[in-house]
Design a binder for these strands. Structure first.
Length: 557
RNA sequence: GCCCCAGUAGUUCAAUGGACAGAACAAAUCCCUUCUAAGGAUUAAAUGGGGGUUCGAUUCCUCCCUGGGGCACCA
């Protein structure tokens, strides 16, 4: 990357290792800018020092291949001596870069040879995924694609709660109502959701029901009985239904992990380490997180049933045994942040080799205008429902079914991804559908526009592009294109797909400004060739970027 | 009570310790006999409050205020 090249040159000129090279927001500040002079000035005059560094760097032959102007700048007013060194890339170099843009553009080898397992989605069986799950699916898949582009080898994992009280509540209501089983998978899943809600309500209101549900819960764990059989059957409905939905979202897991396959061994691990890592307390087995500035948690209840905590002890071991990862990421809503701090501490004590390899990403909660959504209270819009509603709305102005699906899902995905993932997302249904401004449809529309132009131009997209002096709108696009690989690498490093969104929006709006002001086809042969190359490269980068976000790029809109 | 996280235009969000704090939506005015107007151009508006560190703070430290999350047998 050109960025690395410049950094190396600065290091050479200053003998300073820690170089900050940023891409200024303002075009007049160059393509790259460094504050190194201020950083190392000490009691010297940073301005003079910057001049000296710039002078040395202007003589750097390797650098002069890509950089044609090095300038010292900063508001020179009074004593506030700001001294930035700004770099401008050569226009010939930028034009030459256009030919490097292909379908793999954006890939880097920053994390080549590294393996990561990424757990996301994590919807529970016997109820429907809520909007938080939808966020997890979307964020996880985007993050994975971005990490793959940065060189990571990724294993996609889902962990589903398919056993426990929530399931027993559903089975209780199911057995009580003995409902007619519907044909379609979607209706079956809907039925389970209804049963779950009914059971959950009765559980909270009636002591007797509570006892019955607890009994069912135990029976399912024991196996070979009526409830166990019902559990197996209904569980499969959920699993099949989720697979269908995941496919629609473009997700293909390498492995599903289930609570039912880890609870037994999880309990054994905890019990085997009582007195070493865990401790008996009031009949339960706990981990004393408070000894490590965390908090105490129960791992196995006084009744002897393993809690989530215990299950995680074996789950992570199982994951590592199947995929020897350098990094194991679990992404959940941030309400579990402190839970995972305790869990990781316990795991690291159990397996010192895991230290530094466990990472929890606690993403923000999705809030509707009406407040937090939970799967408990009913009458709340679910994850799948949300996608359906948005797609239906898109159909009102785009009748093509396939395109409406791509645009609708793209709108939801983009609106979830464009913000800092660690902060709460406020989701306004109407606004997300409006599809204006910084939105998925805007990027898709711009892509479709590039394709339309290229299509109309016919085959003559490759011609001479040299000796072309770009105008300011062309230059704005030209200077933005080569930032893409840097952005993807930064997004991977910071677990922040929003960086990719922001970049795509910036590129798209620069292209649209250019498009509105200048004709591309029939603008004189040299100019036309150059503009078509610029259009093709922009389209390619938009398509690559959308792909990383898990969003489709229709040719027409 | 204790522990985390966050507080930026009317609203939703940006800003690896740096150059006039960027957008979008909403509001106002323009631009389709021209390659997709789901587009483009122009205009108004913000760092919760007090201290501190620094040449320089939205960013780091500290106190206060406000909001969200978590804290023993749920997942």
């Amino acid at each position: 990357m050109t960025k690395d090249k410049i950094i190396k040159a600065i290091q050479k000129a200053t003998e300073e290792k820690d170089i900050h090279l940023e891409s200024p927001e303002i075009a007049e500040h160059g393509d790259y800018s460094t504050n190194v002079a201020m950083q190392i000035a000490g009691n010297k005059n940073p301005r003079e020092l910057a001049e000296k560094i710039a002078k040395t760097m202007r003589l750097d032959r390797d650098l002069s291949v890509v950089v044609n102007k090095i300038e010292v700048a900063g508001s020179a007013e009074g004593e506030t001596s700001r001294a930035f060194i700004n770099f401008w890339l050569k226009e010939e170099f930028l034009v030459g870069e256009l030919s490097d843009v292909n379908h793999t553009y954006g890939k880097t080898s920053s994390f080549k040879g590294k393996k990561v397992m990424f757990e996301y989605g994590d919807a529970n069986t016997h109820k429907l995924p809520h909007i938080g799950h939808l966020f997890s699916y979307i964020y996880g898949e985007a993050m994975i694609r971005i990490m793959e582009a940065a060189g990571w080898e990724v294993y996609r994992a889902s962990y589903q709660g398919d056993i426990g009280p929530h399931v027993a509540k559903c089975l209780w209501a199911f057995e009580k109502n003995k409902p007619q089983v519907p044909e379609s998978l979607a209706d079956k899943a809907q039925l389970l959701q209804k049963m779950y809600q009914e059971g959950s309500k009765a559980y909270d209101e009636n002591e007797k029901v509570k006892e019955e549900v607890n009994k069912i819960n135990k029976l399912v764990y024991e196996g070979s009985n009526k409830y166990y059989d019902l559990w197996k059957q209904t569980r499969q409905w959920s699993i099949d239904y989720y697979k269908q939905f995941e496919k629609r979202l473009g997700i293909n897991y390498d492995r599903y992990y289930f609570e039912s396959e880890v609870h037994e061994k999880g309990r054994e691990i905890v019990e085997a380490n009582v007195g070493k890592i865990f401790k008996k307390s009031e009949g339960a087995i706990i981990f004393e997180g408070s000894k490590y500035d965390l908090h105490d948690r129960v791992f196995v209840t006084s009744a002897g049933t393993p809690m989530y905590e215990a299950k995680d002890m074996y789950l992570q071991e199982l994951k590592f045994s199947q995929w020897p990862a350098d990094l194991l990421i679990i992404s959940t809503a941030h309400e579990q942040n402190e839970y995972f701090k305790v869990i990781f501490k316990a795991l690291e004590m159990l397996h010192p080799k895991y230290t530094g390899k466990l990472k929890h990403i606690g993403f923000g909660m999705v809030n509707l205008k009406s407040g937090k959504m939970s799967s408990r209270t009913g009458n709340i819009i679910g994850g799948i429902e949300l996608v359906d509603i948005v797609v239906e709305r898109v159909k009102k102005f785009n009748q093509d079914k396939k395109t409406a699906e791509a645009v609708g899902i793209g709108a939801v995905k983009y609106s979830f991804l464009k913000n800092n993932p660690l902060q709460d997302t406020k989701f306004d249904l109407e606004e997300s559908i409006a599809a204006e401004g910084n939105s998925g449809p805007y990027i898709q529309y711009t892509y479709a526009r590039t394709q339309s132009v290229l299509h109309k131009a016919g085959k003559q997209t490759s011609g001479k592009t040299e000796n072309q002096k770009p105008n300011s709108e062309e230059l704005a696009v030209l200077r933005t294109l080569p930032k893409f690989p840097e952005i993807v690498a930064a997004a991977a490093e910071n677990y922040a797909p929003n960086l990719v969104c922001n970049y795509l929006y910036d590129l798209a709006s620069k292209f649209n400004t250019f498009y509105n002001k200048h004709r591309i086809i029939h603008s004189g042969s040299v100019s036309s060739n150059f503009r078509l190359a610029l259009t093709a490269a922009t389209g390619q980068v938009l398509a690559n970027g959308l792909k990383l976000l898990g969003i489709q790029a229709p040719e027409k809109m």
